[in-house]
Design a protein around this nucleic acid. Structure first.
Lengths: 243, 243
DNA sequence: TGTCTATAGATGTATAGACAACTCTAGACA
DNA sequence: TGTCTAGAGTTGTCTATACATCTATAGACA
């Protein structure tokens, strides 16, 4: 009873609201450790499974971060979550039955990056940079161009991984402790190279999702995603269920 | 045991894979009615709560559609889901503590839409169209311009609703049986009017999310979302948890 | 024929309990 | 001092059970 609203919502929703309220009003600031499931169970008077479901869903929605054996923590604002979703379209392509194929266009180590590259990607220290370009195909049609600049100090053997598997972003996320992320979504005209790789015309508008990740001070990575065409269009039809 | 993989995944993940496999290989086509939780419980040899969790998560991920008292059905490919997420940024603004405000710029009924409007929005029948323009503010800063054209045959009293509340899209979704959706995401230069409303310069690039929904034959709706600025940028920082 | 009602069947929620897996630390021990 | 181990605390999973809620339908009844 204490702290839970009186509306007609299910209990686990009330628990979620309770947690979100405590986050929203600053009671539990960023990275604060939440009370344990056991504590919430007794203080809120609901079963542990109900608390657990609430916390699990809030974690999936990006509000919390949980570490087994340690505790539950308040996540930073989930502003970037929706943008992250976009970059998962590739995995979704696979999930919805289309055939996915990835082709490595380029794989190189830039030993001495020029100042422009350093500035553009905000590398804070002079060091070699690994550079990769991969084109993703859906049923044989080029759909996405993926370009990455990875600081060699951040990931040791970046070039050795299997780029044809889907988990390239997951690879980065799991091999490095992520501390800061920024996303930019924008539109640019296709260069001659883009046009050739994606089977579009030069100067066609491309949607670009640019993601930068920092860990610590000097190390940095940059990922660039490019969507094909002047517009990225997807459609679907809902039909009444079979009887 | 029958049908579940032998990997080290948790049971509910295996159940999810089992369902996705049956969808992927065409065994359960679109809108097919799945076996009931009870049937899956006995055929897979796991408890109902485990089956339920798997189905609930797949529903949240857009693969299934569930109706209480009726059953579980295979959803159409969830291609548009990630794009739908984008349009929810407004609600997220509120969720992450920023103040949200909406201002109605225009509210009119177009009794005799011209041919260009009909063509552009693929209205299939001549009828009055309700037109609204709303600007959304985050902490007083204009963030999004939302323009809607709604067929009056689809929603009777569209203009009467409360546009300052957030649920305008939810309103449409719940007041009409949705049968078909299409999303287009693109980039356009801001018109003089856009620039004025969003406090940007004319010809600045705007990201546009365009959503069309059809129900049945003749009726149609069009929603247009416009994001501010030449780029839409969001950032966040992850810090190590407190000790 | 039409309407109302009871019922079966399906999903939604909630609980209690058990065990597994992981992390951290205090204390034993060399 | 350094290392190892046991244990406490936390989250993750799974089960069995119960009841609530919703839908569609068959059958009673007027």
């Amino acid at each position: 009873m204490p702290g839970l609203s009186n509306t007609a919502l299910p209990l686990y929703e009330k628990v979620k609201d309770f947690v979100l309220d405590n986050i929203g009003n600053g009671n539990w600031p960023q990275n604060e450790k939440l009370p344990s499931e056991h504590e919430l169970t007794s203080s809120l008077g609901v079963s542990r499974m109900t608390v657990h479901r609430a916390l699990r869903e809030l974690t999936a929605e990006g509000y919390l971060r949980r570490v087994q054996g340690v505790g539950t923590f308040v996540s930073p604002p989930k502003a970037q979550s929706t943008l992250i979703e976009i970059s998962n379209i590739i995995s979704e392509i696979k999930a919805r039955g289309s055939q996915h194929r990835a082709e490595v266009i380029l794989l190189e180590r830039i030993e001495r990056p020029d100042q422009m590259l350093l500035d553009a990607f905000e590398f804070r220290k002079l060091c070699p940079v690994d550079h990769s370009m991969v084109v993703h195909y859906e049923n044989g049609v080029p759909v996405q161009l993926e370009e990455r600049y990875v600081n060699t100090e951040l990931v040791k053997n970046y070039l050795d991984q299997d780029f044809t598997s889907i988990g390239t972003y997951d690879y980065l996320q799991h091999s490095t402790p992520l501390t800061e992320v920024e996303h930019l979504i924008s539109a640019i005209p296709a260069t001659e190279r883009h046009a050739r790789l994606l089977h579009i015309r030069e100067r066609d508008s491309c949607l670009v999702l640019n993601r930068k990740t920092w860990t610590g001070q000097a190390i940095a990575t940059v990922n660039t995603f490019t969507y094909v065409g002047s517009r990225y269009s997807l459609g679907s039809r809902y039909l009444p269920p079979k009887k």
